[in-house]
Design a protein around this nucleic acid. Structure first.
Lengths: 241, 241
DNA sequence: GCAAAAGTGTTCCGGATACACCCATGG
DNA sequence: CCATGGGTGTATCCGGAACACTTTTGC
């Protein structure tokens, strides 16, 4: 064990990416061959995590992992939960896997999630793959629960914070924005009402630019102004019982 | 160091108690005398925390602390953040204190908060005291930030979850409930509108009972039905952009 | 000229707000 | 009988929901 690392604490990074099919999660393949190369005893998927360096904050540790996978810096993230059950790893596969690595089983993990447009990511390593949230593969450890918890937290925070824009490029169309909401909440939204509501928000600013591409009629582009958002957000604390 | 404990991980418990003066936080006095018993070099207040046992979950560890202080079991709590900055303890007082205890400075802590009516607590030990949230004393470590973070999380969650009832006894008046909201959000609410809104919620059920006490006209008692709340909550996921 | 996505207005309803007085009891 | 907190009703306003057709371009 490397003494620069805390040997009982990891961070896990749930990476959400939105594309035209909907909401995806980036996972890493976990395989272990013991007897026969063609028949691994473990072959499933995990959220990417790693040990925390003693000299670094949890945030920094998460960003190191995120950068290693995606090559990206300065992407917003949210710490949503720390898992500390000493019996987190209990399946046969988990135990085989952990033994093969010679590490502790009683590991706490602090979990973060990242949100971004899927196309922003160029995967740097093999063994990583995007999965649609609605059709996740078999997951190791307690990672299914971690992903579900992340998603629940995401949905809740999207209601009160402008995280939705993290899923979109800096310039987006109103239909992009609507699609983001529809994918994440698995609902259908009336386009006219949606436009009215969105256009009433001062922090969504129309640009003098149109996107010409796949579609027929060019669509107007908008951007999210964090400055305007912050300036009006301090004012009102809406209460709803 | 006790080998049953994780030597670098603690849990901290922010305990919120509501009484007729408003929202309070339960703190523990931190004193350290080095040269002169009458002039402690450290004399401030902290949130109560303790090491995590290797055999226990974070939740269990938090509940142990909570029970030790209050004597109470089975009080709802919320895990809101884990603090892992290796330089969390940086003031002179913190360093003196930590050295005097012979423990590590690079300690992570997972923080929970509890909410309950202040009068439910009978303090079991000396050195503990309730402080109004709006007039906190000098706090050690990064505990001021921890308390503020807890409070922000509390306010946000109160909007979407029925945590407010944790601050009230099982039977309460509508004015009690209104006072709870007013204290926590530091706002004034119109009593007539408040009653209308609250009475429209099926999970707030009127009892055939009145409270006779300090006030003149006896006031009707209500209770919160978690069953009804849960049954209707699954249905709707309200979206507000 | 037609296929495909972009964009547009009006009506209706329900919940939110503003606002001032009577009621029941204990002392 | 009066002081004290408990309790009540109405008018207005605004945001949310429902709903179907026209516009602009690429091919």
């Amino acid at each position: 064990m490397d003494f620069r690392k805390r040997d009982n604490v990891t961070v896990d990074c749930v990476i959400f990416g939105l594309d035209t099919d909907g909401l995806n999660v980036l996972l890493r393949n976990r395989t272990l061959n013991m007897y026969d190369d063609d028949y691994p005893v473990v072959n499933d998927w995990v959220v990417t995590g790693y040990y925390v360096f003693k000299s670094k904050t949890l945030e920094e540790s998460a960003d190191l992992i995120f950068k290693e996978i995606t090559g990206l810096n300065n992407v917003d993230k949210i710490q949503f939960k720390t898992y500390g059950n000493p019996n987190r790893m209990k399946s046969e596969k988990d135990i085989l896997w952990v033994r093969s690595r010679g590490v502790k089983t009683q590991t706490m993990t602090t979990a973060y999630y990242y949100a971004l447009p899927l196309t922003k990511v160029n995967l740097k390593h093999d063994g990583f793959k995007w999965f649609l949230y609605r059709s996740l593969p078999e997951l190791g450890f307690d990672h299914h629960k971690i992903i579900v918890d992340a998603f629940e937290d995401l949905k809740r925070k999207i209601m009160v914070e402008p995280i939705i824009f993290d899923f979109l490029p800096p310039k987006f169309t109103l239909n992009d924005l609507q699609f983001a909401y529809e994918s994440i909440f698995d609902i259908e939204i009336d386009n006219r009402n949606f436009r009215k509501k969105v256009l009433s928000k001062s922090y969504i600013v129309g640009l003098d630019e149109k996107r010409k591409g796949v579609s027929k009629k060019p669509s107007k582009l908008y951007s999210f102004s964090r400055e305007i958002y912050d300036s009006i957000k301090n004012a009102d604390y809406l209460i709803s019982i």
